[in-house]
């Protein structure tokens, strides 16, 4: 079936075969592999996207139900030339190792900072408690976002 929705500001049309997830369609149909497939259970946050203003795990969104929706993926946040402040902070503080979780962290943290430019440490941790990182122990991620929150003060 044909599903029309807006992705990163562009109207897109996807040919959806059945009950596959938004994540599948983004990666395999729409050429947007930045959202990562790591658990398909909503238990790691690697596929986080903004869907109609809320951050969700795209693996648990049925693509067929996205008709008329607006989606922002990692590809819609910053670019090589003009990084989002969250992206720059993560790089600057060495918060990227294997990087597989990073797109999910960027999408989720960018949304957090949009709503609250100077979150407290515990707010940062709780807002990102659905995003698993296996490499960093979260230390560098926390330092980067704390620094960003401090800058915003």
């Amino acid at each position: 079936m044909i599903v029309s929705f807006n992705v990163n500001g562009e109207d897109r049309v996807a040919n959806v075969a059945g009950s596959e997830s938004l994540l599948q369609v983004l990666r395999e149909e729409l050429g947007l592999p930045g959202s990562k497939n790591a658990c398909e259970q909503g238990e790691c946050g690697s596929c986080s996207v903004e869907l109609d203003g809320a951050i969700v795990t795209s693996c648990l969104v049925m693509a067929a139900d996205c008709e008329g929706s607006a989606v922002t993926t990692i590809e819609g946040i910053g670019s090589d030339k003009e990084l989002h402040a969250v992206q720059q902070a993560l790089i600057d503080h060495g918060a990227v190792q294997c990087g597989f979780c990073t797109p999910g962290f960027v999408v989720t943290a960018a949304h957090l900072f949009e709503k609250n430019p100077h979150p407290e440490t515990n707010e940062i941790k709780e807002a990102l408690s659905g995003n698993i990182c296996r490499c960093t122990g979260y230390g560098a991620i926390l330092r980067s976002l704390e620094a960003l929150a401090e800058e915003a003060r």
Partner: peptide, 21 residues
Amino acid sequence: ESPLRPDGIPKVTGNFAYASD
């Protein structure tokens, strides 16, 4: 020193190609 990783930008923008991509 702690120079920035050369793969940092592609990883934060989602452009880094993993085997699954």
